[in-house]
Amino acid sequence: MPTEIPDTPRTHRSLWMDVWLTFRQHTGALIGVGVFATIVLAVFLGPFVHGVDPQYLDLQARNQGVSFAHPLGTDNLGRDTLAQVFAGGRISLAVGFAAMFLSLVLGTAVGTLAGYFRRLDGPLMRFTDLFLALPLLPLLLVIIMLFRDTLRNAFGPETGIFFLIVFVIGITSWMQTARIVRGEVLAIKEREFITAARSIGTRERRIVSRHILPNALSPIMVSATLGIANAIITESALSFLGLGFPPDFPTWGRLLFDGANFITITPARVLWPGLAISLTVLSVNYIGDGLRDALDPRLRDT
């Protein structure tokens, strides 16, 4: 990358140090990191502070409001809303990130290969079109029906479904990333610094990993942040159709869905999971925004 060649005499800084220095100046991104870290910490450490079993049905305490024992109230079966939000968060975040990561790897790989190697462009992009043209819901239904019992026997109902859902969401949401990355790669590979790198005999593998991918990072980051939100929402849609996690297994999407009918009675059931999803997506978007700026050498403050 151009900035790595020191054009002015100054102390040497690594790429990631540069990135961090720029990132630090992006207020939104910093707040995003703060909020996101809070959510993650709360979700994973919360159960140690508020040790109520999220599955326990306390029939004496149905549809309760805020109280000391139940800081966010209870649902219509007497389950503690706060404990459910914690438990749901662990699943939703895990599903969101794992599925996003899978789709990102797939999408970037396909997009880069298609953009960089002309011979692969046609076949790979037609393959992408094929996936885009597939009606996703029926495809998901078929995949889940075919593999649900196998995975359930191998890993147990919850882990098995987790793998399946991550896999299913991952392989059905990489196409947008692939298209965006391909476009970016096509543009970048015609640039002078690529020609320069090639002229000094850099291998193709190095050109892709050292020069093209870092420059294509910003669209990848953007689609990654959107991917998390998408994965969380797809998971709740699957749960609704009865193809996701078992119904007593809380995820943010399912809590929101189950609480919708009770919005006038116990608004907390809708408010908190909804807020959690929104804040997660928003903060991840801002982090992505900051990273994009920090990774873009043209915007970086040198």
Binding site: L226, A229, I233, S236, G253, L256, F257, A260, I263, V270, G274, I277, S278, V281, L282, N285
Partner: peptide, 12 residues
């Protein structure tokens, strides 16, 4: 994104 989430989810 925020608006869509809040509204779509709550009133889906």
């Amino acid at each position: 994104v925020l608006a869509v989430l809040v509204f779509v989810a709550a009133f889906a």
